[in-house]
Design a protein around this nucleic acid. Structure first.
Length: 260
DNA sequence: ATGTCGTTAATATAACGA
């Protein structure tokens, strides 16, 4: 089974690119982030016509997350992280698909720093970490995937020294990611490629893609039972080179039916 | 500091967030 995550940066403006990629890569389950569309403006029919069931949590202008599944039922579990009823951002949606708990997340960016946006990011991280602990304790197979807006290590940044003060790479943010992973999650891409330069995002500025000035900020965290089924993983980097493309590339994993 | 997008206010550009 192939599971993918893709920050589309505007689901309606990106629809031709999204449909082209869905047809080309044919993932079974897809997590989308940055829909940038209100609930009623999500292109549901186009997604269904492409062969996918879908649930989504929209928001006008910003954020927004969705889970797609081909030939599989999507049983929604929740559409927000617990822990802050005041939080109006559409950044998390969770469902059970094929017996797997799929958490689709769009972690706050946190810039500029210092300031309230970094504080919100760190609070959101704490809520995610608390929720993730419960998911691990459930013993169910769980994948937590999406745009984490964190480069976990220097290997994940084209020029680390330039990013030390940025909210995507500040020490406390990297530590928050490490605290989460250290609960017992597997960073799927890094497990299969421990020493490779892997990027999932290239800024629109300064020909970043052409220079391969990228960042690895979209991640797959796997619970132990899924870790044992991890067969392959990758980034559909070429999609970042298409016309009218997102600043992120799709990332995917392949799970075997049983432990590998 | 700069650069470029998508979105939304409004119907032309400029803001905001990333």
């Amino acid at each position: 089974m192939k599971i993918a995550t893709y920050n589309v940066n505007g689901v309606n403006g990106r629809l031709p690119v999204l449909l082209r990629w869905l047809e080309e890569s044919a993932p079974d389950i897809v997590c989308l982030q940055e829909l940038k569309a209100p609930q009623e403006k999500f292109p549901e029919q186009a997604i269904r016509d492409a062969g996918y069931n879908v649930i989504w949590h929209g928001q006008k202008s910003w954020n927004g997350v969705a889970i797609l599944a081909r030939d599989r039922e999507i049983k929604e579990v929740r559409r927000a992280l617990p822990g802050d009823p005041e939080d109006e951002h559409s950044r998390y949606i969770e469902a059970i698909v094929d017996g797997i708990v799929v958490g689709c997340l769009y972690l706050p960016n946190g810039n500029p720093v210092p300031g309230p946006k970094l504080e919100y990011k760190l609070r959101w991280f704490e809520r995610l970490t608390a929720h993730a602990a419960g998911l691990l304790q459930s013993g169910l197979p769980v994948v937590l995937t999406g745009d984490y807006n964190v480069m976990p290590t220097e290997l994940d940044v084209y020029k680390p020294e330039r990013w030390v003060e940025d909210a995507l790479f500040r020490p406390e943010v990297r530590q928050a990611f490490k605290n989460l992973v250290d609960q017992g999650w597997t960073d799927a891409l890094r497990k299969l490629y421990p020493n490779e330069k892997i990027y999932t995002f290239w800024d629109y500025f300064r020909n970043a893609y052409g220079r391969d000035a990228g960042l690895r900020i979209d991640h797959f965290l796997l619970s132990p039972s899924l870790d044992s089924r991890l067969a392959a993983a990758g980034v559909d980097k070429h999609v970042r080179g298409w016309e009218k493309t997102s600043d992120h590339a799709p990332v995917w994993i392949e799970l075997a039916d049983t432990a590998v």
